[in-house]
Every structure is written in C-alpha cells, then in structure tokens.
Design a protein around this nucleic acid. Structure first.
Lengths: 193, 193, 193, 193
DNA sequence: TATGAATGAGCTTTCATTCAT
DNA sequence: TATGAATGAAAGCTCATTCAT
C-alpha cells in the first residue's frame, strides 16, 4: 500500500486518467501499470483483462450516479422542485466525474456484448427513475404533455453527457452554476403555460 | 469504378461504416480494404494514413453541417422562427448522419493534435453562428438573458450530439419528429415570460 | 528466395527441426523465424498461426506415407510378399522422416480438436489400407486367424512409430536393415503353421 | 489429508491426469494446484519445480515396471514361457498406467538433460533385463539368431509404448487379451523353425 | 506447513506502413 | 494506378517462481 491506496486502487486510478486522456484502445496495459507504479503481473493478479479495468470504472460511475438520483427522488415537495434538484444534481455529479463520464460514452462499444448489456440495463433503470418524475409532472398537469417523457429524458441527458466535451474543471463556470442553468432551461421548456 | 463509386469513395464509405461500428482503433486497415474490395496498396495510394481516413470523414461531416446551418441562418423572419428552424434542421441532419456523428465524438481524440485543432476551430465557427442567433434574440428581448448564450449552445448541442446513442434509423420516431420536439423544448426554455 | 528455397519452405524446414528437437510448446515463434532467417511478420504473412506450422508438417508426413503405401499395395504377387514389402517400406519411409514422425506422435495433442480429427481420419485410412492386406492373408489361410487384424496393425505400427525414440540416422543400422528385420519378425509371427 | 491422500499425493495425481490430457507444457502450475485443491505455495513446499512433478511421475512409472519385470524374470520354466509372461505382463502393466506411459514418451524431452540421462539409464537397465531373456533363448537355440536381440527389444517395446495411442480403458479389449496377443505375435515371430 | 501477492521475462499475434515491381 | 510480400514495433496476456507473513 502506497499513499494510503491499495494496488488495485492505484491501478484503477491510473486507468481512469489514461483512458479519459488517450482513449481505451490507445492506452496500453504497459501505460497503465507504469502510471500506477506496479508491474503487469500485479495488474493481472487483480484484474482479468484490460477490459475488466474498463468495466470496473463503469461500475463505479453507474453506482455513484444511481445513488445520488435515488436520494433526490425520494425527497418531499412539488414535482417541479424535485426534478429541478435532480437535474442540477446530475450535472454536478457528472462534472465531478468528467473522466469517468468521458470514458463511459466514448468506450462503451469496446466492451464485450455481455458486459455492454449489463451496463445498458443499469443505465436504463437510471433513466426510468428520472422519467418517472417527468411522467408524474405530466399527469398532474404541471408539465406539458405534447412531448413524450422518454424523449425529454434523452434530450436532457444528451446535454449532461456531453459536459466532458466542453466543461473544464478549471474553467470560469462552476459545476453548480451549470447545474442551475441546465435545470432552469430544461424545466422552463417543460412546464405548461 | 464499381457501382458508380470511385475507389476512394468506396474506401471512405467502408471506413465510415466500420469506424462507427467497431471504433477507429479496433478497425484495421485490412478490415477497411477488404470491406471496400480494394488492396492495401490502393488505399495508401489515395490516403496518407489510417488517420487520414478519419480526417476525411470529419471534413465531410463538418462541411455538411455548416452548409445547412448557413442556409437556415440567412432566411427571413423572427429570430425565434429562425432558431427553431436551425434547431430542427441540425437534428435532422445529424439523424441522417448517425455514423458520421458517432465517429465524430468518439474518435476525435485519436487524431493528431494539429488536426484536432483544425476540427475544433471549424466546430467553433459552427457554434458561433448558432450562438449569434441566440444573442440576437436575447438583445431583442425575445429570449431570456439570465443564461449565457454560450451555455445555451452547449446545452442544446449536447442533446443533438448524443442522438447516435439512442436514436435508431429503424425506430418509432422519425428524425423530423425528434427535430420538432427538441426545437420546441429548447425554444420554450429560452423565451422570456 | 535463398538457397533455392522460398520463404515458407525455409520457415517450415526450421519449424520441423526445432519442433523435433525441443518440442512444439518449447519452441517459440521467435526461435523458428530466427532459424529460418526471416521476420515474424513474414511468418504470419504465410501462416495463420504457430499451430498452422504444425498442421503443415503433419500434412506432409501423412501425404508422403499414404503415397508410398498405395504404391506398394497395388503390386502383384502373394499377399505375404506384398505385406512384407509394405512393412519394410514404411520403416524406411519413417526412418527417412524421423523428425516428422517425432513431431507427429509427440505433438498431436497440441492441435485444435478439429485439426486432430482431420489428421486422425487420414491416419485411419492409412491403417485401413494396411489392415486390408492382413485380412486378405487371413482369409486365404496364409496368416493366422486367432488375432484380430486390427490388433496386428496396432502391434506393428507401434514398433514403427517408436523408431524415432531409438533409431539414429548416424547409427550402426541402416533404415533398410531395420525394415527387413521388422518385416521378418512381423510376418513370421503372423503366418499360419 | 483428504480422501486418505496426502497433499503431495493429491498434487501428483492431479499432475498425472493433466499432463496426460493436455501435455506438460500446456498445463500450468495453476491448473495443477486447482485440480489438486491446494495452493501454489503448498506445491512449491513439496516440489522444487514443475519439472520436479514430471520427474516424480517418471520415477513411479519406472519403478513399477522394473519391479514387475524382475518378478517375472526370476521365475522357473523354459525361456519361451518366461519371455511370454514378461511380454504379457508389461502390456498389462502399461495398460493399467496409460496416463503415466503417455507422459513418459511425450514429455521426456521437456526434462533437463541431467534428469533425462537418469531416466534413460534406468530405462536401459529395464531393456537389458528383457534383452537377457531373448539372448538366453537365442543361445539355447529356441529363438532365431538372425535378428539382433537388441532390435527385437526395440521392436516389441515400440508396440507396448504405443498402447496409449489407441487402447482405451473402456474399449472392447481387456489389457490381458492384448497382452496375450502381443506376446503370442512376438514369440511366434521369434522362435526358430 | 501453508498462503497469495508480486515479479519479470517471455509468449503469440496484430498492425500500420513501406517498397520493389 | 495498383499489388502484396515483408517489416519491426508493440500489443495483451501467461506463467513458473519467490518471499514476507
């Protein structure tokens, strides 16, 4: 253990950074183990394959996002407020995990079909929870009913998932500011008039 | 020439399909030339490198999108209508080019830094044109002024660029329907009240 | 082409020698290409895999033996003489191909199941032809009938296939001498009294 | 101790089975310890190396065969009967140890030169004892003298050592039947007329 | 007596690219 | 304009073995 991190943790951290920077395919196992300061043998002692590293990274991103959403969804208050909170929160969460999100949408296709299925299933559950909020608002008449809730989810999450393409941690805007603005734009477009 | 397509056209078409399907790194030059029905030598006669294929694909996507936007922007009418048309149009254009768009956002990082700069510059010009419409609306009071035009552009294009992640050419929704809905959601979120 | 041998021929010759000397698994592709004076890339240009080298070697051994046997079998004369000729000939042929035979019986299990099946089928045809001679002799009363022809074939070919374990090309005995003796011992054990 | 077998016994039994099935080189130490239900550390506690496992297996095969032969040789009776018994017995012994014999002739070349020498020396002693019987018969005029005793030994043991290539424990023929037939074929080929 | 993390060398194979023809 | 043999570097991964505990 070095710097309070175990060997597998160091390996995953190095993989996260490198995959985000150079892409999964362009990063060699050699690159990862050098960055992590371990040997190749050690890596293969803890992980089955290079793809396995990717899978672990995915799992962390998914778990983290799901936990946050579940917390927001069960709160009290009008659906509009809850949706606004969920929108702002997912932006902040994503912004705090730009590397993980970058890898997520750039490298999904590199995973084996089986693992892709697992990831997509998890992802769908996340979308379903979110969609539930929109449907609730539509049924209570707060949100417009002329656009399918499904499409609204894809519309909003597109914006969120593309954050890594332009948002820089060192930039002018804070994650919270972006979260508030995105939530506002989305809710304003959604409420009935 | 076979099927009315020249050798370089056949090569590019094969590359487009394969890069979108398997990713740039996971597609070998061998794969491309076999799919195109030509030899490796022929490919290297027309293109400098594998990366060059990617660059050509990028160029086509960029040119195509820019041309469409320029046509929409110069039309007459209220800024709200022009923006709505631009939004709907970019969705349709993207939907008709899912493969190109997939490659665009998944493989940009595989290109040499120089070429990436060129692509980003082009991309920025596109965004600028689009942002001009929003600023025009904000200055005339039609659009809200509490969210920066820049952020609005990123917000909307995120949705557009993620279309390849969920939109299927054979699916229920037509590109036009999605375009109308996206435009509506965006404009409704943007107009002053 | 060097020394009148093409690149694939040089590669196969090197593989034959090394596989016989060190075994298939203990011989690296590196070893083979260095011995053949070519590069690894060249080897993979002509052969699909290391196993493919083995398969080619097998094919040559099988073809060679089958051709010889077929020539002997169709000759004229009493069955005892034809069998004697066949026995002596297979010994000589094997002795002139000790390396191939060594590899054959030592490395068969390293090949993919499919290829093993192919080889075994070919091998069986060879045995069948040989067995035909014995059956012919048994039916005409020349050979004893109290031992199954099948078992006789396995009995004799065991002796033949083990030649590489003790016969040295530089040794006292010539291949022809061994062939005559083996044929004599076998036939004498087989004839009715 | 599990199932009445000590740890080293379990390891050797697993190695025997795996080496026979997949070959020495294709079997990893991992494979062996998993099959034996022990850890790598335990294996290296009892054995010096992977090769050491092979050596132990060889030792058992050699010891077992030598013991049996010595018992047969010292019996009373005509040399023809004693040779017949020895032949039949070595077939049965081999048939009851197909795995060991398979490994013996397939993997000898994987052992270090030193150990190979030891094994070959042991082997030669075995052959010598057997050859003694033949020489005895030749000198007493019972066996033919026109074929060297040495060659006769190689002739017969070839048949025996190839048993693993075709004899299946579950097959039609019993080991005893094969032993009788092989002995009969060999003796009949050997006796003077 | 036994563990299992860690090593480091070596393995087969792939691949973008070159070049004589 | 096109071929395809040949290159050489690098890839992902395996493995026998060691050693602190």
């Amino acid at each position: 253990m070095v710097d309070g991190k175990t060997v597998p943790q160091r390996i995953l951290a190095a993989a996260l950074e490198l995959f985000a920077e150079k892409g999964f395919e362009s990063t060699s196992v050699q690159d990862v183990v050098v960055a992590a300061g371990v040997t190749k043998g050690a890596m293969y002692h803890y992980f089955d394959s290079k793809e396995d590293l990717l899978y672990e990274i995915y799992g962390r991103v998914l778990r983290m996002q799901m936990e946050r959403l579940n917390e927001v969804v069960v709160q009290e208050g009008p659906v509009e407020d809850r949706l606004r909170a969920a929108c702002a929160d997912v932006v902040v969460t994503t912004a705090n995990n730009l590397e993980g999100t970058t890898i997520f949408f750039r490298s999904l296709h590199q995973m084996s079909t089986e693992k892709q299925h697992g990831v997509r299933r998890e992802r769908r559950r996340y979308h379903e929870t979110f969609r539930g909020l929109i449907v609730e608002g539509q049924e209570s008449g707060v949100f417009r009913g002329d656009v399918s809730a499904e499409l609204c989810v894809d519309y909003f999450f597109g914006s969120v998932h593309h954050l890594p393409m332009w948002l820089k941690p060192t930039g002018r805007l804070t994650a919270e500011e972006v979260g508030r603005s995105f939530a506002e734009l989305f809710i304003a477009g959604l409420v009935s008039r």
